[in-house]
Write a protein that binds this DNA or RNA. Structure first.
Length: 484
DNA sequence: GGTTGAACTTAGTATATCGCAA
DNA sequence: TTGCGATATACTAAGTTCAACC
């Protein structure tokens, strides 16, 4: 497990190594010859792993296909569950295999061994009288078989890394159960549309409330609405150190008077209301680094307040609402009668805008730099060609010969006689202008690529954009749904 | 009224697959 | 046909919410 991770940056992190070695030594036992991590050479195992990977890569398409079909055949019987008489797809029917825990950020438990899950760890939830799924390991049995029809999970086990956490087997996202709850989510966010003006008026008033708690609630709601922050629950020590709105520390937030704000986990400074800036400066006063910005606030308090404003309103609803309405707005404003590609481009840009609002990030891809320099090369080449054309143009203007190409062949003289001057300069000029727009387009593409190297579009599309907005736009503008 | 914990949603990453241009 | 980049999917960690409990 460790050797396979040799080329990741986990393998060089002290916490990761320490946690890994502690757990490994437990397995090795006190008297084992292996005592020091530094003396272990994992290279042979790593090289074996690389060879196996290469073997897999070398397989022909048919071999891969056969393998896939064989796997599918074996899994078929685990892929479905009958719920209220309807066959539904199961999301995850495999337990998490053993491995080394990979937490996000500087997680204190990274590298710990995630042990194998046994049938005796697993609780099954099925209908009363339904046949109990056969335990796949002979001689072992399930921890428990329950018949709870008030929950949607099919099975669960305790997370071996964080004992108090559970891992569940649920139905797939395409199941009617998940679809139904998705629909309810989007209906709720549509309902917010009818309340949003009142809510915004309300918190704007409270920016200057004498009551500190009220003022903190107002500013927190504003940040959630305006910057699409997530709620920010308290977490135990021993978990990843990340934060949302309610857990903001004074050092996460810098005010730039009179109306700008810098959040350390977001790239740019953002423009905010001056009164919000003043309020935040006030919340800062007298606090040391590491202190909570909203000391009078937690998610329970905040959600209670939101629930008063609109039944069922929570912090997350603002994100869904703002994401979906942004998509709708951009699609309405910017879609023009154009080619299919142009329409899809509008959709993409709207999607990207939403991803930026929701701060959906990803790592820069390994090949990003290489891709960029390839684009740069292409642009340079085109620019070189452009310079040549310009020289040609001036020569033609002066009635001179164009000379030869590098390979010695004479350049096609576009204007052998002065009489054709206008026509030939036109042709060169036209070439120059198409080249110009080509370069321009590439420069724009390059900029977009660079700007969005850390933006992930998938999450907002699946979790925050009401599919009905996309569907109706597709219908209106004759774009096939699967292209959006 | 605050705390805890169960259940469920959201998020990011590794990997597989797709689709298009060279 | 191939190889690359874009896109989809699988996986699992991290987060939210709500209700039970004390």
């Amino acid at each position: 497990m460790f050797a396979v991770m040799k080329d990741t940056n986990y393998a060089v992190k002290q916490t990761f190594i320490e946690n890994f070695f502690t757990d490994w030594r437990k397995i090795l036992g006190k008297n084992h010859i292996i005592k020091k991590f530094e003396l272990c050479d994992f290279t042979p195992i790593y090289e074996w792993h690389l060879r196996e990977k290469e073997k897999k890569k070398q397989m022909t398409t048919e071999e891969k296909k056969a393998l896939r079909e064989e796997k599918l055949k074996q899994e078929e019987k685990y892929m479905w569950a009958v719920v209220d008489g309807v066959k539904e797809k199961v999301g995850n029917f495999r337990v998490e295999p053993p491995g080394l825990f990979r937490g996000c950020g500087e997680h204190p438990k990274m590298g710990k061994l995630k042990r194998r899950i046994q049938p005796s760890d697993i609780t099954i939830n099925i209908g009363k009288g339904a046949p109990v799924p056969e335990c796949p390991i002979p001689g072992e049995c399930w921890k428990e078989v329950k018949h709870d029809n008030t929950v949607t999970w099919l099975a669960f086990w305790n997370d071996p890394i964080s004992k108090k956490d559970f891992k569940y087997a649920f139905l797939a996202a395409s199941s009617s159960l998940k679809g139904q709850s998705d629909k309810e989510k989007y209906e709720k966010s549509r309902k917010l549309k009818d309340h949003i003006q009142t809510i915004r008026d309300n918190y704007t008033k409270d920016f200057i409330s004498k009551d500190v708690t009220k003022r903190q609630i107002a500013v927190a709601t504003y940040l959630i609405d305006k910057l699409a922050l997530r709620a920010g629950n308290e977490k135990d020590n021993g978990e990843a150190d990340t934060g949302g709105c309610c857990t903001l520390k004074v050092d996460n937030v810098t005010c730039i008077s009179p109306n700008k704000l810098q959040l350390d986990f977001m790239g740019n400074t953002v423009e905010i209301e001056e009164l919000v800036c003043k309020a935040i400066e006030c919340f800062h006063a007298g606090k040391k680094a590491g202190a909570a910005l909203f000391d009078k606030l937690d998610t329970t308090t905040l959600d209670a307040h939101l629930n008063d404003l609109m039944p069922g309103l929570t912090a997350e609803v603002f994100r869904t609402y703002n994401a979906s309405i942004t998509l709708d707005g951009i699609l309405h404003e910017e879609t023009e009668d154009g080619t299919l590609l142009e329409k899809i481009d509008v959709y993409q840009r709207a999607n990207k805008e939403v991803a930026i609002i929701c701060n959906h990030q990803c790592c820069v891809s390994k090949s990003h730099d290489a891709q960029m320099s390839r684009v740069n090369e292409k642009i340079d080449k085109l620019k070189g060609r452009m310079d040549e054309l310009k020289v040609d143009l001036s020569k033609v203007m002066e009635g001179r010969s164009l000379g030869n190409y590098k390979d010695g062949k004479p350049k096609r003289n576009l204007a052998p006689e002065i009489g054709h001057l206008t026509k030939s300069t036109c042709r060169i000029e036209k070439k120059i202008s198409t080249l110009e727009s080509k370069i321009e387009k590439m420069e724009i593409d390059k900029k977009i690529k660079e700007d969005l190297k850390t933006a992930a579009l998938g999450t907002s599309k699946i979790k925050y954009l009401d599919p009905r907005i996309t569907l109706s736009w597709c219908k209106r503008h004759e774009v096939p749904f699967e292209k959006s």
